[in-house]
Structure formats: C-alpha cells, structure tokens
C-alpha cells in the first residue's frame, strides 16, 4: 500500500517537474537574452526588474487590493449569473416551445456577450464597479443559460420516459433528472462564459475603473513601466490558470467522465 503510494507520489512529482521545466528554460532565456541583446527597459523589462516590481508593489500594499478587487468582480458577476442562469436555462429546456423560441436569441446573445456590452454598461451604470461586474455577469449569463437549456434538451428521451413511468413528479424530474443530466453542459457553459468574462474583465477595467489588474496594467503603459505590465500579465495568466485548470477543468472532467457511460448509452 505505502509502496504504491510512494510510487504514485513520485510519479506526480515527476509530472509536475515536467510541467515546470519549460518555464525554467523560458526564465533562463529571459535572464540571458535581455542583457545580451541590450534591450531597453522601455521595450521589455529584465526578469529581476519584474521581480523587484512584484516586491515593491506588494510592500507598498498596492498589489493585493488590485488582485482582490478583480477577483471579487469575477466571483460576484459569475455568481449572480450562475444563480439566475442555471434555473432559467433548465426551465426553458423543460419546455419544447420555450427552448425553440429562445434558442436563436440565446445563440445571438452568446456571440455578443461580454466586451461588446462595455459601452452600454458604462452608459447605464456609469464608470466603476457596477459596469465591470455587469460585463462579467453578462459574459457568463448567456453562455450558462444556453448550455443549461441545451443540456436538458439533450437528456435522452428514454431516460425521461423511465423517470416518468417510475412516478417522478415534475418537481422531482427537475432535481433528479434534468439538473444532473444537464450538469456536464452547465459546467462547459461556465468554462466558456468565464473565458469570455475574464477577457471582458480586463478590457472593462482598462476602460472603466480605477482599480483592478486591468487598470494597473493600462496605467503602467502611460509611464512605459514595462516591468509592471509584464508582472500584471503574469499575474493575469497565473490567476486564470488556477481558476480554469485547478477548479473548472477537473470539475468538468469529473462530471462528464462519471456519467460518460450514461452519455454513451444515450447516443
């Protein structure tokens, strides 16, 4: 038991090392190339400069509040979108007429969601937090409504018939059949929506606020502080990787994998 455990752990460490090694190579290239090619810090910062930017910003107590305000906007906007969008999508999906009616509208809205709403959002809610949260909300909302609806529509006819003939009420159908049946689609919708939302967040912060990662990123441009720009870009990348790869992707894989047998049986 402990033997296999040890081997498993070693395998995991090994794969983590493989994952990190390209970054080590990249970092080394960065360290060597900037002084070797004599690149001006106005064009591209050196690695130590970015590191000291990180240290300075953290010490000055500026970095953490910006990160938190960006994350807060994402969680608030996405949270509202999930809370409203999932029930709405499931209910639409349960009715053939409603889903036929809303399907083209939703496809249109998914295509338009996020960044295109920035002008309107800032017009309605003014520059500030409200507009940014709205952009995040709307990027997630349409994707999640559409996918929840699609998930219900794709639940196999024989499954629905089986549940009905076993005596499930409409309410029970919702909780026991439609919601779990649509869950893989809901998670996919959340991933797609958050992908749009994250980009929308950065854009909206550049345009419409005075806090957050996007704002700091764009402000640094005015003073040619490339070290701060690169630092912010790295932060944006790392935060998204953590959200997408460590939270959403495993969740998606688990729901889809766990029920993949069922999915196959439907097809």
């Amino acid at each position: 038991m402990t033997m296999t455990h040890k081997i498993r752990t070693r395998a995991r460490v090994e794969s983590a090392a493989w994952f990190l090694s390209p970054f080590v190579v990249l970092l080394a290239a960065w360290l060597v190339a900037i002084p070797a090619l004599d690149v001006s810090p106005r064009t591209f910062p050196s690695a130590p400069a970015v590191w000291s930017a990180l240290v300075d910003q953290t010490a000055a107590g500026e970095l953490i509040p910006h990160v938190l305000s960006s994350l807060g906007r994402v969680f608030l906007g996405a949270g509202i979108a999930v809370a409203v969008g999932v029930p709405a999508g499931l209910l639409m999906g349960m009715s053939a007429a409603l889903s036929t009616f809303f399907s083209p509208l939703l496809r249109f809205s998914v295509a338009l969601a996020g960044i295109a709403w920035i002008p309107l959002a800032t017009l309605w809610l003014g520059y500030g937090n409200g507009a940014v949260v709205f952009v995040v909300f709307n990027a997630v909302f349409f994707a999640i409504v559409y996918n929840s609806m699609l998930g219900v529509r794709q639940t196999g006819t024989s499954l629905l018939r089986a549940a009905r003939s076993l005596g499930a009420s409409r309410w029970q159908m919702f909780w026991e059949v439609y919601l779990p049946g649509a869950l893989p689609n809901i998670v996919t919708g959340l991933r797609v929506g958050l992908g749009f939302a994250w980009r929308g967040l950065i854009a909206a912060e550049i345009i419409a606020t005075s806090t957050g990662l996007g704002y700091t990123l764009f402000l640094a441009r005015q003073y040619y502080e490339t070290d701060v720009i690169i630092l912010m870009m790295i932060l944006i990348g790392v935060l998204w990787l953590v959200m997408d790869r460590l939270l959403l992707a495993p969740f998606e894989r688990r729901t889809i994998q766990r029920w993949s047998g069922e999915r196959k049986a439907r097809a």
């Binding site: 970054f23 550049i206 764009f218 944006i236 990348g237």
Partner: peptide, 26 residues
C-alpha cells in the same frame, strides 16, 4: 508537445487583451 504544452496553457491564459498595453508600447 511535452515542452510546449505548459507554455501554451500559460500564454493562452494571459489572454489577448492583457497584451494590448505592451503591444501599444511596441
């Protein structure tokens, strides 16, 4: 694949719009 896949995930995660400021500088 082995070398570039982690980099790919990372650079995709940075997202297009975050590149805008430095691209404008360039």
């Amino acid at each position: 694949r082995r070398f570039s896949w982690p980099l790919l995930l990372f650079f995709q995660a940075i997202g297009d719009i975050a590149w805008l400021p430095i691209v404008i500088i360039w």
